[in-house]
Amino acid sequence: MLAQNRTNFHPATFLLLGIPGLEPFHIWISIPFCLVYLLALMGNCILVFLIKTDSSLHEPMYIFLCMLSVNDLIISTTTLPKILSLFWFNDREIKFKACLTQIFFIHSLSTIESGFLLVMAFDRYVAICNPLRHSTILTPGVIMTLSLAIVLRGFILLTPHPFLLLRLTYCKSNLIAHTYCEFMALIKLACDNTRIHRIYSLMLAFLTGGLDFMLIICSYTFILYAVFQLPSKKARLKALSTCGAHFGVILVSYIPAFFSFISHRFGKHIAPYIHIFIANIYLLLPPMLNPIIYGVNTKSIRERFLKVFIYTKK
């Protein structure tokens, strides 16, 4: 009897269902997923290598970009191998503690990513609106402090997540209708009152991603105002091109995340496979697009990449 209660309280394993309704197409869906993962690995590794090995790229924007790339490498590796294992080998089983660990890393790393996007927007704001003070404002000490604060915020604020889930009783089912473990997916399997858990998750989302996004919008509003005050048309176009690429990355990161968050809590009539696709996009697409967008639109990185490529070719 005690063993049965213990199993209900902490299931030994959960079973991931992948994308319900599209099981016959899992093998085909895995192809773009695998390509996205390989591109994310290759692009971010190249970006980290270029920034680390070229001293001319040891500037605030590139340092933050390097940290963003490392974060992207970790977050994509946290989810993709298990998703591909599910699609290719029907490996649905995931241990209870492994599921909680995956939830912690997915949410904490997503929060860290949001923080780095915010400081990169701040860096662009200082560079365009106050260029003469850029080096005195964003000193190495300030960069280190901001980076440490972003990482600590992600880990500290999200640490309660697995412990809150650990205290719940899971007696409905151990089937997770998703490709990976997700906080709200487990909340829906619990038999206890989860009102506090939902409120905490909602508050956390607004205090991290929601607040970051509003501050980013404010930064780019000031940036656009400063850009249109520039006397040279060429300078305006150059600034708009750089900021446009950065803002594109931000939209790709935030829009799917917000859609996934809202649909989990309020989108009862949204088809499950749509929600699951969007939830995968916000984790998989930014790590692939970030190095491509920043690399192509940043002259210093592009030139460094061509030098390394030509040298290797010879």
Rank of each mutant, 00 (worst) to 15 (best):
C218K: 11
F259R: 09
D212A: 11
V151G: 02
T145L: 14
T13V: 09
L237F: 10
F258C: 02
V48C: 12
I250E: 13
E113K: 15
V126M: 15
T111Q: 06
N44Y: 07
K313V: 10
F96P: 01
S85V: 00
L35T: 06
R153Y: 13
F247V: 06
D123E: 14
L207K: 01
S55G: 06
P287K: 05
L158A: 03
L189K: 07
I310Y: 15
S232Y: 01
N297C: 15
L22G: 00
L80W: 04
F25G: 00
I255H: 05
S110V: 11
P140L: 10
K238M: 13
L168S: 06
N8G: 12
S108D: 03
A205E: 09
P287C: 05
G141H: 09
T298M: 10
T312V: 08
A127K: 15
L306T: 07
Y200S: 02
T179P: 00
G141Q: 11
T136L: 09
L237S: 13
M67S: 12
L164V: 00
F266E: 07
T145E: 06
F305A: 14
L186Q: 06
K82I: 05
L138P: 08
I217M: 10
D212Y: 12
F305R: 07
R265I: 09
L132V: 11
I31G: 00
R195H: 13
T101F: 13
V142H: 01
A3Y: 12
H58Y: 14
D91M: 10
A185N: 11
I106P: 02
T221I: 10
I31M: 01
I75V: 15
F228A: 01
S173G: 05
T139L: 02
H107S: 07
M42C: 13
K188D: 12
I281P: 00
I262P: 01
P32Y: 04
L165Q: 07
S219T: 03
N290A: 03
I31H: 02
G154C: 05
I255E: 02
K234F: 09
L284A: 14
G43P: 04
F14H: 03
P20V: 02
I74A: 11
I176L: 15
R167I: 05
N280F: 06
G21W: 00
I276M: 01
P140V: 07
H161S: 04
E59S: 15
V252A: 11
S69P: 10
L57Y: 15
F247H: 02
V142R: 15
A177D: 05
V126T: 15
F14G: 01
Y254L: 02
I156Q: 01
R302N: 07
L50I: 12
K307Q: 15
D212P: 00
I27Y: 12
V126F: 07
I74R: 01
V249A: 10
I276R: 06
P32H: 03
C191Y: 11
L168I: 05
V151C: 12
M214I: 10
F96R: 08
Y37F: 14
S300Y: 08
N130K: 09
C129W: 04
N44L: 10
K172Y: 05
G210D: 00
N193I: 11
C218P: 00
L168N: 10
I270V: 12
N44R: 06
